[in-house]
Amino acid sequence: MLQFTQQHYFALKLFSALGCGLIAGVFFAFSTFVMNALARLHPKQGITAMQSINITAINPLFMGIFLGTAAACVFLAGSSLLDWYQPRAVYLLIGSLFYLVGTLGVTIMFNVPLNDALAIAAPDSANGESLWASYLTNWTMWNHIRTISALLASAAITIALHE
């Protein structure tokens, strides 16, 4: 049986802090320039490009970091509750919740349904054009929340690294 040592625990916290930061960076890029660039395209081109992005985003590397960080945060949240007397437990819990609720939860509840609706939109239709206009606003707003949440998660878990 694998014994979970302090070194393992530190490595898990480090992985989580880096994973949260990496995901925050990906989402930050979308919020600050990718969506703006797509909005400058003709709706048909923008829809087609975003449909392609949404397909290629589902790859082992991105999903491994995105979901692996979530799994690590579940473990850290649980361990923080079990070790609540530890000085940095509150930072682990707060950081984990920022990631799990504000990043993963928002993705599942808001960004994915918007992506699913866009996936079946006909890029050259009036309905597609109307959907694209609302998609740009709504998806980007929720992405801002994911970005801030992942960044706050990274900061809180980073603070918890110092023991």
Rank of each mutant, 00 (worst) to 15 (best):
I58V: 15
Y91S: 08
A17S: 02
I65K: 02
Y85N: 14
D124L: 02
G128K: 04
I159D: 02
W139V: 06
A39V: 03
A155D: 01
A70S: 12
M35A: 14
L67G: 07
Q3H: 12
S154W: 06
L38M: 15
A126V: 10
I94K: 01
I108Q: 03
W139A: 05
A29I: 01
L161V: 07
N54Y: 12
I53N: 15
F4W: 15
A11S: 14
A72V: 03
N54H: 13
T158K: 06
H162N: 13
L131A: 12
T56E: 10
F15D: 04
V34F: 14
S130D: 10
T158R: 03
E129C: 12
T147K: 08
S16K: 00
F33D: 08
G102N: 00
L161M: 11
N54A: 10
F10D: 05
I120A: 01
R88F: 10
P43G: 10
L93C: 05
E129W: 07
L18W: 01
Q6V: 13
F75S: 09
A72Y: 05
F30Q: 03
M1K: 09
M50T: 04
R40M: 11
A57K: 06
A24Q: 02
A57G: 08
W84S: 04
R88Y: 11
E129I: 06
V101W: 00
A160G: 11
